[in-house]
Design a protein around this nucleic acid. Structure first.
Length: 887
RNA sequence: UGGCGCGUAGCUCAGUGGUAGAGCACUACGUUGACAUCGUAGGGGUCGGCGGUUCGAAACCGCCCGCGCCAACCA
């Protein structure tokens, strides 16, 4: 027993110190030599530039709760932390930082000096989010913390690249890719956000060569006409059949371009049925160009300015568009301008409009990888929770395109390819590349390493295996891979989860996790996405300062149904802080009695209430176990919340007060033992959700009940049995208390005023169960004396009546009854009862119901009917007596 | 355009075939023994609409309405 708890629950007071102690004691270090089954989760590595937002907080809360639960149930639990170098994001942050401080920019510094700046930036700013995870109580094994650019992990990245290359799954090709003119780098399809935006459909007349005819094309991007190399019409279109094979004069240029028939590109219904073809600046046109062997004319530079010599040279796209349209109008070639909403790709990071651009990039052949990822989910090697995400999973995997992995950035894993003499040498090191060059007859001294770096998601795709030691067959990799659960927001299912699945299976022949567990997006109180510009960002750090990390965790966990978005409610967090105050105070109450607690107390015979609270705990434990197995942490948390507040605090603690204070030696001993058991069970169950407050309260339990110094390492078990007899008995007692309290409330009788009570049941077998009820009525509802009897007894006059399930309660209100008010009350009760009775009678009056419904359902309905009839009769009789009283 | 999700008390949401629930908010009452960050009691719902399946539907099916998300190559 430690010192008395402070009167007030103050999370700030205890959280920081507890975390430091946990970390110092090494509670969270996972041992690869352990005999216990492994349970591994890798924390989705936050960006090194990141600071904790409420989405991270949810991620951390969910994963920590899973990990702590497993740690307490006999597993070697490993939760592995780390950070992601986040190529584009970090490079942007550092560039902005340099600009703000007036230092030389990236270009001026050059590659090596700039990278040095980034590393410096990381050294000073890169550990904030780790500290914030500590604040949340995350039981991460910090001794294993990794960074995607650290040496070991980089080895894994290189290894993966080289192997893919050797297997023919990594190749270099000139293709049309998504290009961010803002960042001047390629992007993967996923990094492009398509936004619907209002635009126009310009109808432009192209004069047919050697004729007066004009072919009108419709386009949303008139400026790209400068790069047109054909006009396509549908081969079956009678309007244009005679034109196929002819040419048009491309306005504003001196070029003539062919009219081709193309049934794939052209939709007869849309626009004019004639499409200008710009292979260099549109994915569909590019494919069309290949089909018809059209030249490709690139009209844009890497910053999306017109690169074509002539009057438009150097203009940004938007400006060029205006000028081109104006010039076409001047020539009378603009036939029509329609409003037209369409979807425009934007760079996820810079916001710039993405331009398709022809360039030489590295690609991963994803189809074979995706095939195996799908096999894993089909076979059940990996399950997706919630299941409904499977359909989007398969849809995406089935339609996957090759993945452009090279980026024209500096911060990242440089591509392990060296160029010389027009040849490429892909190798694990420069030395090996030199040897390859030598063998190929190329002078090794001329080798120049590829300038590009890899997509950040390429490296994070290796995260579970790479952090555990791959490609080395380390003890950790053997013990902790594959991992059990990959938990993250559903927004990065494809960015990250899909890539880990593809790479993990490809390189290890094992799916990297057994369960993909997806949570939703955290929104603001109005359900809007949080964003800095909207100024609706709720900072989890503010919330932990105000209410404590435990309340934040509990709130997030209970608000989050799997896969569903959740609205952040500070009000609810406050409610959970209040709950934790309740837990705190309940423990303070217990502490005053548990000081005298001894192991021999467990020898005292337990009464019905003691058996009841243990049974309710057992039931709660089973519910929690079941909910965890189904990844319903919200349900598990609600069950615990309900048990602690509405069973332990509302009832058992109230019930235990008399025996604890005034009971016989046996009674008080039994009450202490049950209180200790209930509290111990409650704290253990709650610990995965709220580790701080529970561990702070842990010492309030008798030392012999604590198998470890900290709850972090304590055991959670689920083998306790329920005791249904005691549950039935106490349920009856609770109902009786409710009836008496209800009577007092409805009749305006002071809760403390002693009343004589008669408690009646219709079933003789239940008469024996009324002892607890009698005691509870005295202890909790100020009954002066209680008579228990069968309700066949003559009913006294001047007593108020209340009916419950198989139960009738009479309270002596002689002289205190307002007859008119009581008449109203009884009439109301009768009406309410009649409503149910009629519903019930209606069902039983339906021959088909009696005939076809399961026997048990019919029997239950019959029992209810009898019960409602009994109540009706008793209430009516009471009303009659009242009328007599009035006379 | 397609796919998915949602629509249940004033608010936020649980509830997958058998008596409509929780938290918050609201109303009334209650502070000398764990707790006012509290307690006791209470009011409040044609479960979006229509149709179907069923003895029985908030739940299952179909259609419709409204909202949201994701994927999209109609220039």
């Amino acid at each position: 027993m430690t010192a008395e708890l402070p009167k007030r629950y103050d999370p700030a007071e205890l959280e920081q110190a507890l975390y430091n102690a946990w970390e110092e004691q090494g509670y969270f270090a996972a041992d690869p030599e352990s005999d216990r089954p492994a349970y591994t989760i890798v924390l989705p590595p936050p960006n090194v530039t990141g600071s904790l937002h409420v989405g991270h907080a949810l991620t951390a809360a969910v994963q920590d709760t899973l990990i702590r639960f497993k740690r307490m149930t006999g597993h070697e639990a490993l939760w592995l932390p780390g950070t992601d170098h986040a190529g584009i994001a970090t490079q942007m942050v550092v560039e902005r930082d340099l600009a703000r401080r007036g230092e030389p920019g990236r270009e001026e510094l050059g590659r090596d000096a700039f990278l040095e700046k980034v590393w410096e930036w990381k050294a000073t700013n890169g550990s904030r989010i780790q500290e914030q995870h500590r604040v949340l109580g995350a039981s991460l094994d910090w001794s294993r913390e990794r960074f995607t650019l650290d040496e070991g992990f980089s080895t894994a990245v290189t290894e993966a690249f080289v192997r893919l290359y050797e297997e023919g799954l990594m190749y270099r090709a000139e293709r049309l890719i998504n290009w961010s003119p803002g960042l001047k780098t390629s992007l993967s399809d996923l990094e492009v956000d398509h936004r619907d935006s209002p635009g126009h459909l310009w109808h432009i007349a192209y004069p047919v060569s050697g004729s007066d005819e004009r072919l009108v094309v419709a386009t949303t991007r008139p400026e790209t006409m400068l790069g047109d190399t054909a006009v396509a019409v549908h081969p079956d279109d009678p309007r244009y059949a005679h034109l196929v094979g002819k040419t048009v004069e491309l306005p504003l240029t001196d070029r003539q371009i062919p009219i081709v028939g193309d049934g794939i590109l052209v939709d007869l219904e849309f626009g004019t049925g004639a499409v200008k073809v710009t292979p260099a600046h549109d994915f569909n046109d590019f494919e069309t160009g290949k089909r018809h062997d059209l030249p490709i004319i690139n009209i844009l530079d890497e910053g999306a300015h017109i690169s074509l010599a002539g009057p438009y040279f150097g203009l940004p796209v938007a400006e060029a568009r205006k000028r081109v349209v104006a010039d076409l109008e001047a020539q009378g070639l603009v036939v029509k301008i329609e409003e037209h909403a369409h979807s425009v790709g934007h760079c996820q990071r810079s916001g710039a409009v993405v331009e398709p651009r022809l360039s030489l990039q590295w690609f991963v052949s994803t189809k074979p990888l995706a095939e195996r990822a799908m096999q894993a989910t089909r076979s059940g090697e990996t399950q997706i929770v919630p299941k409904r995400f499977e359909s989007t999973w398969y849809h995406w995997m089935e339609n996957i395109q090759d993945w452009c992995v090279s980026r024209q950035l500096w911060w990242g894993h440089r591509i392990p390819a060296w160029h010389a003499g027009g040849q490429v040498f892909v190798a694990r090191s420069l030395e090996v590349a030199q040897a390859q060059a030598q063998a190929a007859g190329v002078d090794p001294s001329e080798l120049v390493q590829d300038e590009d770096v890899l997509d950040t998601w390429f490296s994070s795709g290796l995260w579970p295996m790479g952090t555990l030691g791959w490609p080395e067959e380390t003890p950790s990799l053997k013990k902790f891979y594959p991992t059990q659960v990959l938990e993250t927001g559903h927004d990065i299912l494809f960015f990250w989860v899909a890539r880990m699945m593809m790479m993990g299976i490809h390189f290890t022949d094992k799916a990297p996790f057994h369960t993909i567990f997806l949570h939703g997006m955290v929104r603001d109180e109005l359900g809007q996405k949080m964003s800095k510009t909207k100024e609706n960002v709720i900072d989890p750090v503010d919330i932990t300062n105000e209410y404590g990390a435990d309340a934040l965790r509990l709130g997030l966990l209970l608000m989050a149904a799997p896969g569903r978005d959740l609205k952040m409610s500070v009000k609810r967090i406050e409610g959970y802080r209040n709950f934790l105050t309740k837990v705190w105070n309940a423990t303070r109450f217990a502490q005053t009695y548990l000081g005298d607690c001894q192991e021999s107390d467990w020898d005292a015979p337990a009464g019905a209430t003691e058996q009841w609270i243990r049974s309710r705990l057992a039931d709660t434990q089973h519910k929690v176990k079941e909910a965890f197995d189904a990844y319903r942490l919200d349900e598990a948390g609600h069950a615990i919340y309900h048990f602690i507040w509405h069973e332990l605090c509302d009832w058992y603690i109230e019930l235990s007060k008399r025996p604890l204070r005034d009971g016989s030696a046996d009674e008080s001993a039994a009450a202490r033992a049950a209180l200790a058991d209930a509290l111990s069970g409650a704290l253990r169950l709650l610990h995965p959700f709220c580790p701080f407050v529970t561990d702070a309260l842990w010492p309030a339990l008798p030392a012999f009940m604590r198998e470890s110094d900290s709850l972090c390492l304590a055991q959670l078990t689920f083998d306790a049995q329920r005791n249904l007899d005691s549950e039935a008995q106490i349920a009856l007692a609770i109902e009786a208390v409710g009836l008496l309290r209800g009577l007092r409330g409805q009749m305006g009788i002071n809760p403390r005023e002693p009343l004589s009570v008669r408690l009646q049941v219709s079933d003789p077998e239940r008469l024996g169960q009324l002892d607890s009820a009698a005691r509870l009525l005295v202890d909790l509802a100020s009954a002066a004396d209680v008579v228990t009897e069968l309700n066949t007894a003559e009913q006294p006059r001047g007593w108020a009546i209340a009916t419950g399930e198989g139960l009738t309660l009479l309270a002596n209100l002689a002289g205190k009854v307002d007859i008119a008010a009581e008449t109203d009350r009884l009439t109301g009760e009768i009406a309410k009862n009649d409503k149910e009775l009629n519903k019930c009678g209606g069902k039983l009056g339906n021959a088909k119901f009696v005939e076809r419904a399961p026997e048990a359902v019919v029997a239950e309905e019959r029992r209810r009917l009898a019960e409602f009839e009994r109540r009706r009769d008793e209430l009516r009789a009471a009303l009659d007596r009242l009328a007599e009283l009035e006379l």
